[in-house]
Simulated assay, not measured.
Amino acid sequence: MKIIKVLIASLIAGIAQAQTDQVGKSPWGPEDEIGTLNHMTDTSRLKALSGISSGRVYDLSFDYFVGMPSFHSLGDPNYQYWLTHTPRGTVVDNPNGLGEDMNRLVSYTGDAISMYTHMGTHIDALNHFGLNGKIWNGFSADRHLGDKGWQKAGAETIPPIVARGVLIDIAASKGVDRLTENYRITVEDLKQALTRQRIQIGSGDVVLIRTGQGNLYPDRESYLHDYAGISLEAVKWMVEDQGIMLLGADNLSFEAFPPEREDNWVPVHTYLLAERGVMFMELVNLEELAADQVYEFAFIGAPLKLRGASGAPMRPLAIPIR
């Protein structure tokens, strides 16, 4: 009987929590579709770029390839690549009608891809996850989601991102190559790493979290196996207390599984995207930055402008600023 009472109490608490979870209303107005990226201004971008102290550019993206890690287990499509033209095939097919001699002289290769938008290094748009049928700023699936995608908060609305970037290397702070399986990064972990790195985060920053999972890329099974991630408490500290603008990490889902709440299977996603209007990047390649102990940099990145999409590939860059 006692166990039943505990289970009922837990269920009631979960229902009560779920009922309090509501999408956030933007302080930037009823038409806002980019949330905290509104913190960027010409002045803030110039400030980030003016501090550049090196010509070294760090590429923070991973390669795309057939067989790459992805959420195929949820039914999403794998990355597919195929050739549409080859030098020898062009000679045989003569698709341009210019004849064998011309097609032997001019070697023509063309190709195509098909992929899930949340594969590889990418950013989650604010329409990716919502609550109770709505996304950030109260836009609803009933009114704003058509057969060709969301009419609000799609990837095409995300502006080029230029800001101060900070790497928080949790793995190095703990003296390991990679955090333990399913580990959830705490506020104390963040503070200890920042103290070790002698750096602070603040309003308008792009903050990138290294778990060490990038060491396992591109091995599909190892990379996706029980990876560590950020806790809800930790993202709340960065968003509410530090005022950061954008987040990113080297794992595929940012948060860890199984979920830390029984009533929500992606509480970090819904808190950031739906409640606070904070986008984040996944599969960010942080290994070179970490190896060179580059903790502060000008962050530059822009996703593909995929109209209505819930996310898009991007190729972020980091240039040291001190």
Rank of each mutant, 00 (worst) to 15 (best):
13 A>R: 09
201 I>N: 03
101 D>Q: 13
214 G>P: 02
4 I>N: 12
134 K>Y: 04
95 P>D: 05
305 K>Q: 11
121 T>C: 06
309 A>M: 13
216 L>Y: 07
114 S>P: 00
256 A>E: 11
221 E>I: 08
19 Q>Y: 08
273 L>A: 10
136 W>E: 00
63 D>F: 08
132 N>T: 05
96 N>F: 09
245 M>S: 00
221 E>P: 06
252 L>K: 10
218 P>K: 01
277 G>F: 00
103 N>D: 07
68 M>K: 03
23 V>Y: 06
65 F>E: 02
89 G>V: 05
116 Y>F: 14
197 Q>K: 08
94 N>R: 04
232 L>H: 09
169 D>T: 00
77 P>K: 05
311 G>H: 12
248 G>P: 10
63 D>H: 12
156 E>F: 04
322 R>H: 15
95 P>W: 07
286 L>Y: 02
88 R>G: 08
314 M>P: 10
115 M>C: 08
40 M>A: 02
231 S>Y: 13
94 N>T: 06
309 A>G: 12
86 T>H: 06
120 G>S: 02
69 P>C: 00
256 A>C: 06
151 Q>G: 12
53 S>L: 09
135 I>A: 00
69 P>V: 03
42 D>N: 15
133 G>Q: 09
137 N>D: 04
152 K>Q: 08
90 T>M: 12
72 H>F: 14
174 K>W: 07
185 I>E: 06
193 A>C: 04
24 G>C: 00
141 A>T: 14
235 V>N: 03
144 H>E: 09
82 W>E: 14
228 A>Y: 05
45 R>V: 04
65 F>M: 03
177 D>K: 09
158 I>M: 07
200 Q>L: 09
308 G>M: 04
47 K>W: 11
123 I>Q: 08
141 A>W: 10
286 L>R: 06
188 E>Y: 09
226 D>M: 11
152 K>G: 05
49 L>T: 10
167 L>S: 07
134 K>W: 01
302 A>R: 01
176 V>W: 02
297 F>L: 11
254 F>M: 10
178 R>K: 14
97 G>I: 05
102 M>D: 13
17 Q>F: 15
220 R>P: 01
7 L>D: 11
315 R>Q: 15
279 M>I: 01
243 G>F: 00
264 N>M: 10
38 N>P: 07
